[in-house]
Amino acid sequence: MKPPLNELVVLSGKGGTGKTSLVGAFAALADNPVLCDADVDAADLHLLLNPRIRERHDFYAGHKAAIDQEKCIRCGECLNWCRFGAIAEELTINPLLCEGCGVCWQLCPVQAVNFPDNLCGEWYISITRFGPLVHARLGLAEENSGKLVTLVRREARRLAEAKGSGWIITDGPPGIGCPVISSLGDATATLIVTEPTVAGQHDLERVAALADHFDLPAFVLVNKADLHKPTAQAIQQFCDHKGYPFLGHLPFDPDFTRAQVEGKTIMEYNNRKLHQLLTEVWERLSAAIQKRKAKES
């Protein structure tokens, strides 16, 4: 019988707390996982997993308007319609500011606006030493990151189902906006990696509220906990009080950076203490997620 499929999405709210390093560790610890980098804006997981790209696809989403200057009669109506400030006085459209709403394209009295499909980036299916990786690269200064997140997660799920994998481990984006919301639909659980700082704590509270909003269990782990123990304790109390399962404290350890410099996950770097801590974290986390899933079904 195939194991039930779980997707764990690793989030943080605040950037730089250690999401990707932990996803790397879980990639090494999970049994037969499919890996997914949903931080399409600033993807980094590939730097630990050294993927060999097997499939490469263009990602088209939305449109960008452009004015055909030969057809334009300079009535200036589009300038009044555009709510995004994308049209300059001289009636040219700045693609960086164009939202792709199509109002100028549809309403131009002489059809002088073109509205081509927008190539926003690329996405890939790769092989890594721990399993397949679905990842992407959003074009510079592009929109539609939410749609690309949805796409890479859908592909990861398809791969996982095809190979009978029990785990998708997804590296999520920072923040709580569009790409984060797209990384949560249909997930099994989220792990929020935070740090013992006023900013880490503040941002944890917001991203945990977002997980609640989507009715998703949120596990919490404090990374670099020894940098400020009182705040690490306060975060643990907050989680106990709010009912977010608390997974523990990880120490600040420059070996995370050293492993990264060598292109390794921390589980492949010689640091027994971290290996033991992370193995325990993964065992508790995976068991808790499986138990919850069993209860649901």
Binding site: A42, L140, E142, E143, S145, P173, G175
Partner: peptide
């Protein structure tokens, strides 16, 4: 500014 390189960053930097 927010982290990343997509629309919230462009909106900020503009």
């Amino acid at each position: 500014a927010p982290p990343g390189t997509s629309c919230p960053v462009v909106t900020t930097l503009w």
